[in-house]
């Protein structure tokens, strides 16, 4: 009776070792895969979270462009082509809001620089809005507008500017 038991347990042990060896060869654990994927994408995207289950990687978080979203998915697949079965890409593309100038003091000094070469023009700043008055030859209107827009005001009001 004891002998049979011994044989059975020995057999079970051999089987277990064999199974472990096989499984170890064919795939890595989800935890290891998650670590591997995270390492591959974390350089620039520490805010993207990675989940791994049975070789399926789920990505979540937000990025600024769709290109980034697609590149991340590709990077995940490339991280371990053999063990990443598929990628569930739940990343949300969120375009950041465009920022406009809210600091009038800063804007005034920049407007002074921008309008230095336009002596016939006067520019006032209030609450992030640049109001242009005076007169200017038509050929230079675009140059002025480009220079003022580059300062990111809320608005450039040139309705009172006389174009010659």
């Amino acid at each position: 009776m004891m002998k049979v038991k011994k044989i059975i347990s020995a057999l079970a042990l051999t089987l277990a070792i064999a199974c472990a060896a096989v499984s170890c060869k064919s795939k890595i654990s989800d935890a290891d895969l998650k670590t591997k994927v995270e390492a591959a994408i974390s350089a620039e995207h520490s805010d993207i979270s990675v989940d791994a289950k049975d070789g399926v990687i789920t990505l979540s978080g937000t990025v600024g462009t769709d290109t980034e979203k697609q590149e991340l998915e590709k990077a995940v697949k490339n991280a371990d082509e053999k063990n990443v079965k598929s990628v569930v890409n739940n990343i949300v593309v969120e375009t950041p809001q465009i920022e406009t100038s809210t600091d009038d003091t800063d804007l005034i000094s920049k407007v002074t620089d921008a309008t230095k070469d336009f002596p016939t023009v006067k520019a006032d700043v209030k609450d992030g809005v640049i109001t242009v008055t005076g007169s200017l030859e038509q050929a230079r209107v675009q140059t002025l507008k480009m220079a003022l827009d580059a300062l990111h005001p809320k608005k450039v009001d040139m309705s009172a500017l006389t174009v010659k």
Partner: peptide
């Protein structure tokens, strides 16, 4: 025309404007 409506603020950068490149002076005439 002449941007009189003031309903757009546009800032377009140029990607080739990086350190080490050549740029042209585009003043009116001065």
């Amino acid at each position: 025309p002449n941007f009189l409506s003031g309903d757009v603020v546009m800032d377009i950068d140029v990607s080739t404007a990086v350190a080490g490149t050549q740029v042209k002076v585009i003043t009116q005439n001065s």
